Simulated assay, not measured.
Amino acid sequence: MKTAPGAARPVTPASILAARLDDLVARAAGTGLEDELRAARDLAVGFDPYVESMTSPESPDLTALARATAAFDWRDAAGALEQEMLSGHVEGRFLAMLAHATHARRVLEVGMFTGYSALALAEALPDDGSVVALEIDPEVAAFAREQFAGSAAGRRIDVRVGPAGETLAALAGDAFDLVFIDADKAGYVEYLETILTTGLLAPGGLVAVDNTLMQGQPWAGPDTVNGRAIADFNAAVAADPRVEQVVVPLRDGITLIRETERSGARPSSGAVR
């Protein structure tokens, strides 16, 4: 296994803003704007570290998984994979809090990567709880399974390998209390529609969707395929009368979605499409 030491690159609106302000401080030396820019930079740079320091610590198993993910050289992996895809400490605790608050027993994760969020959710479930985690890449799934094997809560995770659309169709009617979507952005609309119309979401269940602020691209650019996909998804959800939602500006954005009425097997007018 190759290693790739070094800090993760900025991939959230707050971290990107902090990096840009840091660059401006250096360029503004001697211009009279340096002090003002430094104050703005410090406000942005300190945001994520402060939030993390005030959040309950992650478990030793999650720490080990995060370190293993950071140490692996993803340049040799198939597809556009990188350590920054890991959910991480604060988001993991947020998801665990959702599991506790919803009294979830059955959790579905669409897009697992190396398994940090799956393990964080599994740790929050009761002994008879379970996480069904979907992953398209068999090598990444094998990496995650190795991490789960050495963890106390790993036995609660059932990894399913294959295209998410096909796996979701096979799971139709198998209801889950909490669903976490963190897969290919172009598939978000289809995944949510399947979840809402095939009985995958239990009555009173909650859907959490990751990366819905996508590095600020939906409102600030640049115009990218993923940025457009997220902008389209957000607009579709906002216009869907079957659901209500809130966008939480945590990390790269998490949208929480609940049904306002049971949608049945057929999409209604204004459905997410």
Rank of each mutant, 00 (worst) to 15 (best):
A120D: 12
P60M: 11
G216R: 10
T12V: 09
A29G: 02
A186S: 09
V243K: 01
A99P: 05
A4P: 00
G204E: 02
L95K: 11
L62R: 12
Y191K: 02
D76A: 14
A152W: 10
G115W: 14
E84K: 05
I254T: 01
D182F: 10
V189D: 09
D42H: 09
L43S: 10
M112N: 11
A40I: 06
Y50D: 13
A149H: 04
R262K: 09
V248G: 10
A120Q: 11
R67G: 09
D184H: 12
V51I: 12
R156Y: 08
N211I: 01
F47M: 12
L43A: 13
P49Y: 08
S268G: 07
G46N: 10
T3L: 13
A186P: 09
G216V: 06
T114C: 09
A231T: 06
A183L: 09
T194G: 13
P203L: 08
G129M: 03
D73K: 00
R9W: 08
E139F: 01
P203F: 08
G46M: 10
A78V: 07
G199R: 04
V246G: 00
R273F: 10
G88A: 14
A7V: 14
R41E: 13
E190R: 05
L134M: 11
G154I: 02
V110Y: 03
V11C: 08
A183H: 10
A141Y: 05
A170T: 03
I230H: 03
S269F: 13
S15H: 03
S263I: 00
S268I: 00
A4I: 11
D177R: 14
L37N: 11
E82V: 02
